[in-house]
Amino acid sequence: SEHYTFDGEEQAIRFMRDMEAKNLKYELQIHNGKYIIQVD
């Protein structure tokens, strides 16, 4: 699995939509205002 970190919500949402379009599962965590997305 890989981790991707985003500072902004818009970037994170765009990335998650992209993952959904590719049928990839992901998990979102928010730490200290950063959006951390783990992709299986």
Rank of each mutant, 00 (worst) to 15 (best):
M19Q: 05
E2W: 15
R14E: 15
D7T: 08
Q11F: 06
D40T: 14
E27F: 13
T5Y: 12
M19C: 15
I30M: 08
D40L: 15
G8M: 13
F15W: 04
M19W: 04
L24T: 06
K22R: 10
N32Q: 09
A21E: 11
G8L: 15
K22N: 09
K22F: 07
K22T: 05
A12L: 05
L24E: 05
D7H: 07
K34I: 11
E10C: 12
L28R: 01
K34T: 08
H31G: 04
L28V: 12
Q29A: 09
Y4E: 02
D40E: 13
K25M: 07
H31L: 13
E20N: 06
D18S: 07
A21C: 07
M19S: 03
E10F: 05
S1V: 14
M16Y: 02
D40I: 15
K22P: 02
M19H: 03
H31S: 11
Q29K: 13
L28S: 03
E2V: 15
T5R: 06
I13A: 08
H3F: 15
G33S: 04
E10P: 05
I13R: 10
S1M: 13
E10A: 10
L28M: 10
D18H: 08
L24M: 11
I37Q: 00
I37E: 00
H31W: 10
Q38T: 15
Q38A: 12
Q29W: 13
G33N: 06
K25S: 10
S1K: 13
D40H: 15
M16E: 02
H31Y: 11
E10D: 11
R17S: 10
Q29L: 13
R17P: 01
L24C: 08
L28D: 00
I30L: 07
E10I: 06
Q29F: 14
G8T: 15
H31I: 15
F6A: 01
K34L: 11
L24A: 06
S1T: 13
I37K: 00
I37H: 00
K22H: 09
E20S: 06
M19D: 01
E20V: 05
D40Y: 15
G8Y: 15
Y4R: 04
E20R: 04
N23H: 10
Y35I: 05
F6T: 01
G8R: 13
I30R: 05
G33H: 05
R14Q: 14
D7W: 09
Y26Q: 01
Q11E: 15
N23V: 02
A12E: 00
E2Q: 14
F15P: 02
Y4M: 04
H31K: 13
Q29S: 12
E27V: 14
E20L: 06
A12V: 04
A12K: 00
H31M: 12
H31C: 11
R17M: 14
D18N: 06
N32F: 06
H3D: 06
E9N: 03
I13S: 07
A21V: 07
G33R: 02
D18G: 04
I13K: 10
Y35D: 00
D7N: 07
E9Q: 08
E20A: 09
I30T: 05
H31E: 11
Y35Q: 01
N23I: 02
L28T: 04
R17E: 13
D40M: 15
E2F: 15
G8N: 15
G8K: 14
D18I: 10
I30F: 09
L24K: 09
I30W: 05
